[in-house]
């Protein structure tokens, strides 16, 4: 495991709140999330589907649909700039250049009517002082590095001519082409099959070790977290419920929700994989339960959970949890 110190924090998300103001009511997709990303680490955001992981990622670069979405509170500090409130002009210089994002919908994240080359090169020409030929050359090299055979040809392809795994690689290439400091990848392992999943994980490993990238890796799968993450933020109902180094999350989960997620993992030590799941459904973010949002499903619920929001409790310097059991 990699060593890191508290000082080299590269991105700090503080009490971020992103709401969607729809006709049916206010959807509090992200409702007070805080974490920090350290230089060179892989931070995982983990939680069931619908808990606000994607919206958190999109909020960092203000990419959610707006309207109806709006950041109603909190800050996203990068290089002493608050990305949540800075002018569009400045944000555009950060997008793709400093912080790159790979969307969850990898299969439709590429423009179907433009060539791969066009889509990679246009980005470089915006951010870097390169001629088209230089940008092309760089793109080819990067594609090769990502393990794409016959990279020159791929530049002239359209997205529909690529397989799912290839698209994923092209997206990673595209996100890396301006040498960003931070890469946010939203569930890159979810929609792909098992063999490709291993390759994708391998690719992200390499980014960390070879390029010293700082990664925010989003997944709903704790097994993936265990494989690639340094630290993890467990999210539930639009909040960060537990933040800790991955080893501690796996060996000593504090929050009942984290423990529940771990229970769901197929148990490899047994013959038959036991597929448990936490009873109940994740809350509807437009009708959040009062108190701790997890209390209706929590096996260890106590009375106070119904009414009061749990405060942030420090189990250790590196391990924080939002739960009344530790307050």
């Amino acid at each position: 495991m990699q060593s890191y110190s508290r000082n080299n924090i590269i991105l700090r998300v503080n009490d971020l709140k992103t709401y969607f103001f729809t006709r049916r009511g206010v959807v509090k997709a992200v409702d007070g999330v805080s974490f920090e990303l350290r230089q060179g680490e892989c931070l995982c955001l983990v939680g069931e589907s619908g808990c606000g992981k994607s919206v958190t990622a999109l909020s960092i670069l203000r990419l959610f649909d707006s309207p109806p979405g709006r950041i109603v509170g909190g800050t996203v500090v990068y290089n002493s700039t608050d990305l949540a409130s800075c002018p569009d002009q400045e944000l555009r210089k950060v997008r793709g250049k400093e912080i790159a994002l790979i969307l969850q919908e990898a299969q439709s994240a590429l423009n179907p009517v433009l060539t791969i080359g066009d889509q990679i090169i246009e980005q470089m020409k915006i951010h870097l002082p390169l001629s088209t030929d230089e940008a092309r050359f760089k793109a080819i090299n990067l594609l090769r590095e990502m393990g794409i055979p016959s990279a020159e040809d791929v530049l002239n392809y359209y997205p529909h001519q690529l397989s799912g795994g290839m698209k994923q690689r092209v997206l990673v290439t595209m996100s890396l082409c301006c040498d960003p400091k931070i890469l946010i990848a939203d569930e890159p392992t979810t929609a792909v099959d098992v063999t490709i999943k291993a390759q994708v994980l391998d690719m992200f490993h390499q980014l960390k070790t070879k390029r010293q990238m700082s990664l925010i890796f989003i997944t709903h799968d704790l097994a993936v977290v265990a494989e690639i993450g340094d630290r993890a933020v467990v999210m539930y109902g639009g909040r960060d419920v537990e933040t800790a180094p991955v080893s501690e999350i796996i060996s000593a989960p504090a929050h009942p929700y984290t423990a529940g997620l771990l229970e769901c993992l197929p148990d490899l030590s047994r013959e038959m994989s036991r597929l448990n799941s936490i009873p109940g459904m994740p809350p509807d973010p437009s009708k959040m339960p009062p108190g701790c949002t997890f209390h209706p499903r929590c096996p260890k619920m106590i009375d106070i959970c119904r009414t009061q929001e749990p405060p942030l409790a420090e189990i250790s310097k590196e391990h924080k949890v939002r739960c009344h059991l530790y307050a």
Binding site: L63, R92, V94, R95, A100, L101, L103, A109, N111, Q123
Partner: peptide, 9 residues
């Protein structure tokens, strides 16, 4: 969204 994430105007 991808296009915006790339920082395109």
């Amino acid at each position: 969204t991808t296009a915006r994430a790339k920082g395109l105007p």
